[in-house]
Simulated scan of single mutants.
Amino acid sequence: MSPLPLPEPTPAAAPEADRYARGLARLREIDGDAGERVVDSLSAIAPDFARYLIEFPFGDIYSRPALGLREREIATVAALTALGNAAPQLKVHIQAALNVGVSRDEVVETIMQMAVYAGFPAALNGLSAAREVFAAPAAG
Rank of each mutant, 00 (worst) to 15 (best):
N125M: 04
Y52P: 00
E109L: 09
G59W: 07
G23R: 03
R28K: 14
A75T: 01
I45H: 09
R19H: 13
A78Y: 05
V133M: 07
E73R: 02
P88R: 11
D105T: 15
V116N: 04
Y20S: 12
V39M: 14
A123Y: 01
M1T: 13
A130I: 04
A122G: 01
D18A: 15
D33Y: 01
L80P: 03
R72T: 02
A115I: 12
T81L: 06
P11I: 14
P57Y: 06
L24Q: 12
A50H: 08
P137I: 04
V92M: 15
V108L: 14
L80C: 03
G32W: 07
L4R: 14
A118H: 05
S128Q: 11
A66L: 07
A118F: 04
Q95D: 02
V38W: 02
L127Q: 06
T81M: 07
D105L: 12
S2F: 03
G84I: 06
F56D: 10
P65T: 13
L69H: 09
A66Q: 14
P11E: 15
A79R: 00
A14R: 15
L53F: 10
E106W: 10
V108R: 14
T81C: 08
Q95L: 15
L83S: 12
M112F: 12
P7W: 10
M112A: 11
P88V: 11
R72C: 05
V107L: 13
G140P: 14
E55M: 09
A129E: 04
L83F: 14
V77C: 10
A75I: 02
G101S: 10
R28I: 02
L90H: 08
A138E: 14
E36P: 01
Y62T: 03
R104I: 13
T76R: 02
S2M: 09
D31E: 15
Q89I: 03
L27I: 12
I45R: 07
N99K: 10
E29P: 02
V38M: 08
G32E: 06
A123F: 03
H93Q: 10
H93L: 04
Y52L: 10
A82C: 11
P7Q: 10
R131G: 05
I94C: 11
L4T: 14
L124I: 13
N85M: 07
A118R: 06
A25R: 14
D60W: 04
T76G: 02
L83Y: 11
L127R: 09
S41T: 05
P57M: 09
D33L: 08
T110R: 06
E29W: 00
P121T: 06
A130G: 00
R70S: 05
E73Q: 15
A12F: 04
A75W: 00
G32A: 05
S41A: 14
A21L: 12
V108H: 09
L69F: 07
D40A: 15
P137L: 03
G140L: 05
A75E: 01
L69T: 05
I74Q: 09
Y62S: 04
P137W: 04
A79E: 01
N85T: 11
R51N: 01
S103I: 08
H93P: 11
R64Y: 04
G101V: 03
G59D: 11
A118W: 03
P57S: 08
P15L: 11
A96S: 13
G59K: 06
I61Q: 12
L80D: 00
P9I: 05
R28M: 00
L53D: 01
P65I: 02
A34D: 11
A34G: 00
R70K: 13
A135T: 01
L127V: 00
V100D: 08
G140I: 01
D105A: 15
A118Y: 06
P9E: 05
